[in-house]
Design a protein around this nucleic acid. Structure first.
Lengths: 234, 234
DNA sequence: CTATAATGTGAACAGTGTTCAAATTATAGA
DNA sequence: TCTATAATTTGAACACTGTTCACATTATAG
């Protein structure tokens, strides 16, 4: 059903608020996210915002959901751009896009994966679905590689802990993911490995050690696929 | 040179302030770190604290340095406890201790590796040394494994990017680390991999996927060592 | 044209970090 | 022990923060 005039206008103001919030964050970091600053930005009294968001936390949650989806969009776009190439090349492109998005949208990434706002904890039931969406892009490509035989079972990733496998099977059945437990497992392994690099790079802990974080990341993406059993030279 | 009475007393108050800060953080998270709350806790006017720390940021920096050293202590303690066992067993114990410390000291860990305080960015020249200290424990054990031949060169970790190797060599010569570039590289690889798991677990992003994060972490520690070329069954 | 709902205002409250002059306390020297 | 000096502590003030509330304004629908 289409939105009426009032809902449309309301949605427009909500959008204006979010855009002002993103502008402030981009300029002053996640610290710049202040309800009063947003109100100033759009020439409104702070109290007026409460007609659109019940609290600052609610606004932050909205920003987080949008950021998650933007990240998922970036991953999907990377896959599409490399659509003509092999699944392995697509996966590499997607994993590169993951880091690239994080580095070009540091405040959004911190909003998502850090705990940048004091006293705020994102509600899981809201954040988990968009997490899964981005994760699915990676897992889907891994599933392709498994089915095409490009990714063969080699130690140590030819096995996974029984508890984890049971859990993943449960997840697949409950939410109807069109992938195998093995693909999910390898996805989780890759996701956590690369996430660590990005997190450490973002807060400047990695550079003092390895110097060029970009080179390190690229190398680890390749090493990751090799250890998982990717045969074709990349 | 021993501290005079006045310096001793001064240091005592500084310690009292830090302890109050830690107490508040443990109770209310990193958000609870408020200068005024600390002042209330120790029955002092907020302005009085400025005689001991130039600002809240300075206090936070002191807490971060202590946390880094506490983490390094925990890693060293884990190595000592496993001193009788093989270097591989010691390394596993240390890597387990890394996660254990993070989970038992979540606020300290977030203080270190997150960006939990709005507008605050830890000065690198102060934070890097204690980072290196903890890192050295891991790298030292890897060096032992390399020298004893327990860790043999297998693909893909028998090579590292030339840029990274050059940088690590430079680091070794400048700071006089008694380890090889290869040990440093493998250390960085392991560190980033496991750090990602811990970060995602800490903010509850991993559990919805793999369920039991403890089992996942243990498995990944083993897989890490295996992919790096550890021969002995663990 | 009017009743009603939505929207925006402005003041207030309790909290935050920080600065500053003044008052207090403790130390060191004669 | 008394005093001059330094260290410490106080309390008020300033500019912020999120949030609530009664009130005024505006727009919508009947």
């Amino acid at each position: 059903m289409p939105l009426g005039r009032v809902e449309q206008r309301r949605e427009g103001v909500r959008e204006e608020i979010k855009q002002a919030a993103r502008r402030l964050m981009a300029e002053h970091g996640t610290a710049g996210l202040s309800l009063r600053a947003i109100a100033r930005e759009i020439n409104m009294q702070p109290s007026g915002l409460y007609h659109y968001y019940g609290s600052l936390d609610e606004l932050i949650t909205a920003l987080i959901v949008e950021a998650f989806n933007a990240l998922a969009d970036a991953l999907e776009a990377a896959r599409e751009t490399a659509a003509g190439q092999s699944s392995a090349a697509q996966l590499i492109a997607v994993l590169q896009a993951y880091r690239r998005w994080a580095m070009t949208h540091p405040t959004d990434f911190q909003l998502i994966y850090g705990n940048p706002i004091p006293g705020y904890a994102a509600p899981r039931e809201i954040t988990v679905p968009p997490v899964i969406r981005g994760f699915s892009v990676i897992v889907g490509l891994i599933e392709n590689l498994l089915q095409s035989g490009a990714l063969e079972a080699v130690p140590p990733y030819d096995h996974m802990p029984p508890e984890i496998e049971a859990r993943l099977q449960e997840l697949i059945e409950r939410d109807g993911y069109p992938v195998s437990a093995r693909a999910l497992f390898l996805g989780a392994v890759g996701w956590t490995q690369l996430h660590g690099i990005i997190m450490l790079e973002m807060f400047n802990h990695l550079q003092p050690v390895v110097g060029d974080a970009d080179v390190f990341y690229r190398a680890q993406v390749i090493n990751l696929l090799k250890t998982m059993g990717l045969k074709t030279a990349v």
